[in-house]
Simulated assay, not measured.
Amino acid sequence: MKTNGVVNGAFETTRLDVPRTEDENVSILWKNIHYKVNDWSSFTNNKKVILHSVSGYFKSGTLNAILGSSGTGKTTLLNILSGSQGCSSGGGRLAANSKIYVQPKWATSYFIAQHVHENLIGELTIRTILQYAFAFKNGSSARRLAASHIAQTMSTLLLPEKLLDQPFCRCSGGEQRRIAIAQELMALTAPNFLFLDEPTTGLDSVSAYETMRCLQQLAKRQHITVISSIHAPNQETLFLFDQLYVLAKSLDGGVCIFTGPPSYIRPFLESNLPTAITDTKSPPIETLIKIACNGNGKLTK
């Protein structure tokens, strides 16, 4: 894959010069992401590796998941890809040969933190929250477009119009998550990327599925690359994703042990570790996550 320019330390966007093949839709590609933080646990300034030379890519208009057990570096990778975690910030440092390529060059992105819905004022109605967000993102000159844009966004996120005059605190957990997403989508121009940190945490399986289904529709309809870290989706929710990126713990930090569509997990395990898939009735993703927790970053039971 040819690239136009290389950026050390990532975070500056460079345009991908992708050939006219199936890879033409690649919107973000990362190579050798190696991230260390200061480790003072033993009262010496040692470096702890969080991510160990991970590489991958996602395509435009797709819903993508970064999976793995706790401590594998899911949120760190999400923060690095979104640019919200700099190459030298918070006591951490990104290796000089770590690179990120983004298409288009001047891409826009929104990052939705895990607990952002807890920061919204519960007594405000949904209409008021979204009107304030719309005014902030578009200015007063676009005020006449607010009502139609709010209605369209509510429809895309499967939020009934009757919710608009309801206080935020009286909405269900799943509705609150989707309202927080709607707030970020109030700009008239859709972003190129939407990053979400564990948007289904704390939700029941039905609400989690509904939230991810809305994000799937959003990715397809508005051609947004949606990238979400997620902890333990059920089988139905898992198959909403176009691409999975599974991280595992190793002695040298988080490493990628699988990337591809959900339907590829079973043949991947059958090819690389056949006894694991035949010895259990668990869904393939559960088997893969258990393997990811074995601590050596390798496909062994």
Rank of each mutant, 00 (worst) to 15 (best):
M1Y: 12
K2W: 05
G5H: 10
F11S: 05
T13I: 09
E24K: 02
L29M: 14
K36P: 04
V54R: 10
V54F: 07
S55P: 00
G56T: 13
Y57N: 09
K59Y: 10
L63W: 07
L63F: 05
N64H: 06
N64V: 03
A65Y: 08
A65D: 14
I66A: 01
G73M: 04
T75L: 04
T76K: 05
S82D: 03
G83S: 15
S89Q: 14
S109V: 08
H117R: 02
L124R: 14
L130S: 10
A135T: 13
N138W: 12
N138R: 09
S140W: 15
A147Q: 10
A147V: 15
H149T: 04
H149D: 02
T153H: 04
S155Q: 08
L158A: 11
L158G: 04
P160W: 06
L163M: 09
L163N: 09
D165V: 15
C171Y: 02
E175A: 04
I179V: 10
A187Y: 08
L188E: 01
F195P: 07
G202A: 00
L203P: 01
V206N: 06
E210Q: 05
Q222Y: 11
P233Y: 01
Q243G: 11
A248M: 12
A248Q: 11
A248V: 13
G254I: 05
C256S: 11
C256K: 02
I257D: 11
F258P: 00
P261M: 08
Y264G: 12
Y264H: 12
I265V: 15
I265N: 07
T278N: 10
S282W: 04
P284H: 02
E286K: 06
T287C: 06
K290W: 12
G297C: 08
K298W: 05
